[in-house]
């Protein structure tokens, strides 16, 4: 099990504690509200992710063979999803980010429990993470 698979496992275990959608959302919203904000200077059009109905900004910083992500949305539920994505992907090896399948989405029932535009947003964020990882791999 690589580091990303390990992080996915932990998130899945955590979510298995909730047996109804309201608790699940309340948890997502809490995560979202606690997510550290980006600076105004970082909330540029260049850092914006397309394909999300709410506004989402992502910043990636390379450190050796690893990538650190910071991100935020103006919507709390989306920020909650970002918090999960950061736990799984931030600080991980570039090649693992590219190669590890995002099994947590199906396991957390995020597809069924998020409105279509929102899971598009999740898909867009995942795509952006992998894109940034591919860029980092190309530049090494």
């Amino acid at each position: 099990m690589n580091e990303i698979e390990q992080a996915q496992r932990e998130v899945i275990d955590e979510f298995s504690l909730f047996d109804n959608w309201m608790d699940r959302y309340q948890y997502l919203i809490d995560l979202g509200k606690r997510l550290p904000d980006l600076t105004a200077a970082e909330k540029t059009d260049d850092n914006k992710i397309r394909g999300c109905q709410s506004q989402v900004w992502f910043v990636a910083e390379q450190s050796g063979d690893r990538l650190n992500f910071r991100a935020i949305s103006d919507a709390a539920i989306v920020s909650g999803l970002i918090a999960i994505l950061l736990r799984i992907y931030s600080g991980k090896r570039v090649n693992e980010i590219i190669d590890t399948p995002p099994d947590f989405i199906a396991a957390l029932q995020l597809e069924q429990h998020l409105s279509p535009t929102r899971s598009n947003g999740l898909a867009s964020m995942l795509k952006a993470i992998r894109h940034m990882a591919a860029d980092a791999q190309g530049s090494r």
């Binding site: 919507a75 539920i77 989306v78 998020l114 535009t117 929102r118």
Partner: peptide, 21 residues
Amino acid sequence: DIHPHDLGTILDHQGVAIRTG
């Protein structure tokens, strides 16, 4: 200060369809 999209998502879970955006 609830984002309209968040509101729309929570309402949808209760069977209430509104437009947000």
